[in-house]
Amino acid sequence: MRPSRTSYPLSWRLMDALEAVAAAVWPRSFSAAVPWLMLLPAVVLVGLLVLGLWDMADGSFRTLDTATFLPSDDYSLTNYHRAFTEKLFFTVASRSLIGSLIVTAVTLIFAFPYSYVMVRTRSAALRKFLLIALFLPFFIGQVVRAYGWLIILGSQGMVNEALGLVGVAPIRLLYNYPAVLFGLVQYMLPFAVLMLAPALTAIPEEMEAAAGSLGANWVRTFIHVVLPLAKPGFIGAGLVVMTLSLTDFAIPAILGGGSQDFIANAIYDQFFRTSDQGMGATLALLLVAVGSIMVGVVFALFGAGTLAMGRSK
């Protein structure tokens, strides 16, 4: 004899009820829409961003009237003309672009061995140490880290004090372009390691062992096996580091001593110092455009790397 439903445990009956409610609210025939529903928050977020960009695009075609501090009613290309012809914007933009490329290259060079050791080491203690060292900087904000460098590299900082012990006079290590690049590399390193590590983990150790058994020394194994297989990680890490460096604000502001502005600093100045929101919007949109083009070029040449989640293109 089949037992009565009332003899089922309470938790079963509760689950049945919940399933009935779920079926009423979201019938099984709707199941194909579930992935789209899960995409909805992202779509809303991106939509809001696009709305903001649209508003900025509108503002970028309006010039500031300094008699009323209101944007003009009519549209013009004046702000774009200024952005492309004024020396200040060229200087700042080229500094940002070159800086982001240098930082990306140096960061990837430093990040690779770190990631490789972290992934391949047999020592659990070393792996834990490397993981802690990797995540610790995430708990310390960018501004605090930049100020930390002021303490370490300042004229009366630890480095100069150490140099003083061997008779070297204090030297200016801060407030120049190399200091900004140095700060950015230090800031970007954990991001690059995090992006590289999964790609290296995906390379079977047996591949390296096979290369060795076929007579390749570690250099040839590295060049012909590890590097090509790690390419998706390099691309993903490179894209993240490049875009974050290109748009960085705090490190150039703090370690640059006011004379090494990046484009984000120039945008801030237009919005908040000269109250010229149209010019600020113009620079912001151009930054988005340049960053997008750079990412697009990388995608076209090398694919999206780990950002494509397994797909090569």
Binding site: A67, L88, T91, D269, S275
Partner: peptide
């Protein structure tokens, strides 16, 4: 000052960021 602030600021920055 407000009429010329943007222009002066731009020129100052141009010199100092150069």
């Amino acid at each position: 000052q407000v009429e010329h602030e943007s222009e002066w600021f731009g020129k100052f920055k141009e010199i100092m960021q150069g």
